[in-house]
Simulated assay, not measured.
Amino acid sequence: MRVNKMYSYALLIPAGLIYGLFFLYPTVMSFFFGFTRWNLTDWEWIGFDNYIMFFEESSLMIGFKNTFIFAFLTAGLKVVLGLIFAVLLTAKLRTKRFIRSMVFFPVLVSTIAVGIAFSVLMHPSEGLINMVLGLVGIDGPNWLGNPNLAIYSVAFVDVWKGVGIATVIFIAGMMSIPVDYYEAHQIDGGNKLNAFWYITLPLSRPAINAVIILALIGGLRTFDLVWAMTGGGPGFSSDLIASIIYKQYQAGFYGLSTAGNVILFLMVALIVFPIFKYLNRKEVDL
């Protein structure tokens, strides 16, 4: 028994080494280098100066506002749309396999490729989206050039790309619900709406919680799609915390950008962990 237990722990060693080398060690060193002015060959301890400078960044408040808007908007839409798609795709539809592939296809495409493609599609005069709107007499807006619209345009593209993952998670959660519950509900004379509201929705809570947490973490940390579509512009109107950090890194302020990453890490943890604890208390056991 002791040998089997040691053998089980031995199997964890490779994964533990990889985790420690590529996640734990860089995380710890990030906390250290956030207090330094460093480059590839040297470093100098400067205390909290990087953190003070980071919070003095002129576009920081815009970045915080946009990050929260982006994260909560995309997470909410992924939950709602993913749930709707999952309900449709678990129903008896002849074309559900085709619809499943269409919903999940964007997940397989590179985020940078999606960003570049939608930058072309959303061009104010030559983009396909505004051309189609023009055919029905609607004057399409400047999706990515309007400071009041740019962050929302990127958010909807992120939802289009990420809703497939949410849908798959919801389908898995719904498929795990025992059929007996629906049969008993049908015998009692319940309709499909009541079955969804009183059976599917409560018993899909673990899947809903997983989608909320994953979507929130992804939204708070998003960088690549925003950078590919707007570069944080026009001006700073679509900057997120992650894009501000990247601009500081581009400018050669490595210690400052490292401090920004530490702040982003702590911000995500402080937002997501309480929500995670709250959602777990609300789960319904099968």
Rank of each mutant, 00 (worst) to 15 (best):
V80F: 15
A91N: 06
T67N: 09
F68Q: 11
E56R: 13
E57Y: 13
S58C: 05
G63C: 12
K92V: 04
L60H: 00
F54G: 02
F72I: 04
L88G: 14
L77C: 15
A71N: 08
K92W: 00
L89S: 04
L93W: 01
G82T: 07
M61V: 09
I69L: 08
I69K: 13
M53T: 11
L83N: 05
I62D: 05
A91Q: 03
F55Y: 00
L77H: 12
I84Q: 07
K78N: 15
K78P: 02
L93T: 07
E56P: 03
F54A: 10
A71G: 09
G63E: 02
E56S: 12
E57D: 12
F55K: 00
N66E: 02
L93C: 08
F64H: 01
A86Y: 02
L89E: 03
V87D: 01
L88I: 10
G76A: 14
F68I: 15
T74W: 09
S59T: 05
K92D: 09
M53V: 04
L73T: 14
L73D: 06
S58F: 12
K78S: 14
L88D: 08
L60V: 05
V87T: 08
L89A: 06
F64D: 03
A86V: 05
L60T: 01
T67Q: 06
F68N: 11
F72V: 10
G76Q: 03
F70Y: 14
A91E: 07
L88W: 04
F70T: 02
G76N: 07
V87R: 06
L81T: 08
I84G: 14
A91L: 00
E57M: 04
V80W: 06
F55G: 01
E56A: 13
F54T: 06
M53S: 14
F55Q: 04
K92S: 07
F72P: 10
L88H: 08
I84L: 15
L81A: 12
F72G: 12
M53I: 09
K78T: 10
F70Q: 01
T74F: 12
N66F: 08
V80R: 07
V79H: 04
F68D: 08
K78F: 07
L73P: 05
T90G: 08
F55P: 00
E56G: 02
L83Y: 14
L93A: 13
I84V: 15
F55N: 00
T67P: 02
T67S: 13
G76W: 00
S59E: 09
F68E: 02
K92M: 01
S59K: 12
A75H: 11
K92A: 10
A86H: 01
K92G: 03
I69G: 02
F64L: 14
L83E: 04
G82R: 12
F70R: 01
I62A: 11
F64W: 10
L60Q: 02
A75E: 06
F70L: 04
G82K: 10
V80S: 13
K92N: 06
F54M: 11
I62P: 01
F54Q: 00
E57S: 15
F85E: 00
A91M: 09
V80L: 14
S58I: 10
A86L: 02
T74R: 10
A75F: 05
A86T: 03
M53A: 13
